[in-house]
């Protein structure tokens, strides 16, 4: 049970982001894709089974606001989790560039079905939304992921920032 606490906190972070922070952190219509980002970051740090179940749980959190699509995000996010986990096992992802590229690719794959499912204005609007909202959103989210890797590898730290001033 104790092992589950960090994952439950991640799930609460997703819920908190969606309710309280999404609009505050948005740049115009561009939002951070925090849920897939967290799923991928968990998959990069944990094993296959944890990635799978965390994807399912995150999908449940994502879907429950709109129960008419219940299950869709569970499938998409758990698939993202296990694919990321497999890619991590098969490829050498030591460099930050490769990790950032993996995040960007994962987010791109996530956003295509997500945008198609949740865009109510139809397929004709897809291209416009994809260029104006989704691509900037992927860049924004990947930047957050990159920041996370920088902090994790201590390339950015409180002391270094303090020294700057």
């Amino acid at each position: 049970m104790k092992r589950l606490i960090p994952y439950i906190l991640y799930l609460y972070l997703i819920a908190m982001y969606r309710i309280l922070l999404a609009d505050a952190l948005a740049i115009g219509p561009v939002q951070i894709y925090l849920t897939p980002l967290i799923v991928m970051l968990v998959a990069l740090n944990k094993d296959y089974i944890i990635s799978l179940w965390f994807g399912i749980a995150a999908g449940l959190i994502f879907d429950c606001i709109d129960p008419s699509h219940m299950g869709v995000q569970m499938i998409i996010l758990s698939a993202m989790g296990i694919v990321t986990s497999r890619v991590k096992e098969r490829f050498n992802l030591e460099s930050q560039k490769s990790l950032v590229l993996l995040l960007a690719t994962g987010l791109l794959i996530f956003t295509i079905p997500h945008t198609l499912i949740y865009t109510t204005s139809g397929f004709s609007e897809f291209g416009r939304i994809f260029i104006r909202v989704v691509i900037p959103g992927i860049i924004y989210s990947t930047s957050i992921g990159w920041l996370y890797f920088m902090i994790k590898t201590s390339r950015i730290s409180f002391h270094k920032i303090k020294e700057l001033f």
Partner: peptide, 16 residues
């Protein structure tokens, strides 16, 4: 996930 996807609105609504 598939059960929830294919289940009716009642089940999905309850879980949601």
């Amino acid at each position: 996930a598939f059960i929830l996807l294919l289940a009716g609105n009642n089940v999905a609504g309850f879980v949601g």
